[in-house]
Amino acid sequence: MEKVQSNVAGLCELPAEFIRPEAEQPRFTTFEGADAEVPVVDFGGEWETVVKAVCEASSKWGLFQIVNHSISGEVIDNLQRVGRLFFELPNEEKTAYARDPESKSLDGYGSRLRNGWVDHLFNKIWPPNAVDYRFWPKTPPDYREVTEEYGKNLQEVVEKLLGCLSLGLGLGVEELKTAVGGEELVYNLKINYYPPCPRPDLVLGVPAHTDLSALTILVPNQVQGLQVFRDQHWYNVSYIPNALIIHIGDQIEILSNGKYKAVLHRSVVNKEITRISWPVFMEPPPHLEVGPHPKLLNQQSQPKYKTKKFSDYAYCKLNNIPQ
């Protein structure tokens, strides 16, 4: 499929493959009243209060925003700057980092999302043995420095989130981190680039899904686009400046045996303005087996999910094979 961005210039009609079925089109499915009142967690508050807020939001929503976290506005601004500059490069420069179609890895530039109005760049940014610098842009020249700095800053946030979620399950503060891979937990950065679309009422940036990750931490630009499914409607999510948006992914839902909920979400696009987002998917290493945590299971609480290698789970999810 041709890249979405290169199709935009001079586009008079919307290519048919991008038009979603009526049951998915934003014009029929977006709630037109108030935006979703997504929970906001003050990450700088008292520890017990933070734990309670994170666990409650993860159980009821699977989605929340955190403020007063440890990542500076400058670090986030730089991440947004280098990502934007990469996508503003000529197409031939971007395609130098194209994903290898023969590889199982998603690393690189391209579009694998069926009929989504989006181009993207995948780069694993942690741990060091998972990083493949062949797919890291050399332009802008500080892309690597800025992206690695953001990855280092994320570690404290991830540690704290997993600690909260672990305590909320009645486990030790480190047990959930260990269950998702410990120091081998993979940080998979994806930059989503959604160019202006002539008919945003008919298309989706990314169709409805839950993330196959354990957690997803997302930075948006200030263009509205994230929607969450609640009470049989799709609601817009309003952004708070400098907040991080947290998604509970499939692996945390599985490990919690269903106490925490992976959030069903999608993205919509804009007629006039480019939207960009920077999710980082926190994924178990491929070889790790993930299932309901043994300490949560007993005669009254049977496993609701299978235990399987993360690589097998991901293969089924990406190929629409039942788990």
Results as ranks from 00 to 15, higher is better:
112 R>W: 06
241 P>R: 01
91 N>Y: 15
109 Y>Q: 03
47 W>P: 04
117 W>Q: 07
273 I>F: 13
55 C>G: 05
287 H>A: 14
104 K>T: 07
155 Q>Y: 06
166 S>Q: 07
161 L>I: 00
279 P>S: 04
201 D>C: 04
237 V>K: 00
13 E>M: 10
92 E>L: 13
13 E>G: 10
240 I>N: 00
249 G>Y: 02
317 K>R: 07
1 M>L: 08
223 V>E: 06
249 G>V: 05
114 R>C: 12
226 L>G: 02
107 D>A: 12
31 F>D: 09
248 I>K: 00
103 S>V: 13
241 P>H: 04
218 L>F: 00
300 Q>A: 10
170 G>D: 09
224 Q>R: 14
265 H>L: 05
300 Q>C: 09
110 G>Q: 07
323 Q>M: 09
206 V>A: 01
119 D>G: 10
33 G>I: 07
132 D>F: 04
21 P>K: 12
305 Y>L: 00
316 C>R: 09
233 H>K: 15
300 Q>N: 14
319 N>V: 10
33 G>V: 11
211 D>V: 01
235 Y>V: 02
225 G>L: 08
193 Y>H: 12
31 F>E: 11
133 Y>H: 14
256 S>T: 11
18 F>M: 07
95 T>H: 07
314 A>C: 12
286 P>T: 15
223 V>Q: 05
303 P>E: 08
24 E>V: 04
186 V>I: 14
169 L>H: 02
90 P>F: 06
112 R>K: 11
102 E>D: 14
292 P>I: 08
13 E>N: 14
118 V>G: 02
